[in-house]
């Protein structure tokens, strides 16, 4: 039979997160993602050397309105970031995504020092690499992230997010303190490239950037993320260096917003057991987006993590 092997010209960048003692940090392990030379798990035509890595999301403050399945998993620890971090690692997190929600002016307005303290506590409590995610309020992030970056200096974390309208402060911090960076774009390939160009013009290596193309929940725009990721990836594999970065997806955060994942059985009696429905909604979104090339998946529920992992195990076997 004729060959239908696709000749991709470029590889996705390989990126390693976390720094062990020898590397000048305190992490017990590092995590490496990317490096593939084809679309997800098409091993017949290329390498897919590193399976997607799963990060579990945790906050610097007690979350507001997380539904019951998440409360069952974390409510006894979510007032204490160090305990929450340990719990997430027990649930199988290869990385933690520390979301500094509490620094947002509308969600507690915590100080940069408080945020830095949380990051230090988490670094002390667990040995996995960290993703540190700002609150999204530009002014506040520009106060908070430099302090946090400094507090985690040498740990080779992944910090986010740099956006078209606000990237300079974060890029400078990551450069100074040896971190990798997340470039965010709103479901738009051209803006994704633009953000990468802006960041790299400050002397930041393209190989140290992770793309966050914005994630849509299953049923609520997942297909937009899917196609943006797939378009970006096919371009990246075809030689576009501005799109050859690994991709991060915030599956947990988006999934648990939607009523199909969080609506109670009382409100939706025909939808079945919430304790299964919510985690499966999250895991299904992860499994689908993985086919478009997500390398780092940020999740919430332990059962979603567990089943997504078993899927990855089968793909890697």
């Amino acid at each position: 039979m004729e060959s239908v092997v696709e000749k991709w010209t470029t590889k996705v960048n390989t990126i390693t997160l976390g720094a062990t003692k020898q590397m000048g940090g305190t992490r017990e392990k590092t995590v490496t993602v990317g490096g593939s030379s084809t679309l997800p798990y098409l091993n017949f035509e290329g390498a897919w050397p590193n399976p997607p890595a799963i990060a579990i999301e945790m906050w610097d403050r007690e979350p507001d309105g997380w539904p019951e399945p998440l409360a069952d998993a974390y409510a006894d620890v979510w007032k204490d970031p160090a305990k929450w971090a340990k719990r997430a690692v027990e649930y199988g997190a290869e990385m933690l995504c520390v979301t500094l929600k509490g620094t947002h002016p509308d969600f507690g307005n915590r100080s940069p020092d408080e945020a830095a303290g949380v990051v230090k506590d988490v670094l002390k409590a667990v040995g996995v690499p960290l993703i540190i995610w700002g609150s999204g309020d530009f002014n506040k992030d520009n106060d908070v992230m430099p302090r946090v970056s400094e507090a985690a200096k040498g740990e080779n974390c992944l910090l986010g997010t740099a956006v078209e309208k606000n990237y300079k402060t974060l890029t400078a911090s990551c450069l100074a303190d040896g971190h990798k960076i997340i470039g965010e774009s709103p479901l738009d390939i051209n803006i994704a490239k633009q953000v990468n160009i802006l960041i790299s013009e400050m002397g930041f290596k393209l190989e140290d950037i992770v793309i966050f193309p914005a994630t849509g929940a299953l049923g609520y725009g997942m297909e937009y993320s899917y196609s943006i990721m797939e378009r970006g990836r096919t371009a990246g594999l075809s030689g576009d260096r501005m799109l050859a970065q690994p991709v991060i997806c915030t599956v947990g955060q988006e999934s648990w917003r939607v009523k199909e994942a969080r609506g109670s059985e009382k409100d939706f009696p025909t939808w079945g057991d919430l304790k299964k429905r919510g985690p499966l909604w999250e895991a299904t979104c992860a499994a689908t987006l993985m086919q478009a090339g997500g390398e780092i998946v940020v999740m919430r529920h332990p059962d979603a993590v567990k089943s997504f992992k078993s899927l990855l195990r089968e793909f890697t076997a």
Partner: peptide, 23 residues
Amino acid sequence: EPWQLMPLLTVRQNIYTDPRKPL
């Protein structure tokens, strides 16, 4: 179970949505 099929049917709905039309 409905909690198994609902996500699956939704994946199909999403993937087969025409990307040329803004939703």
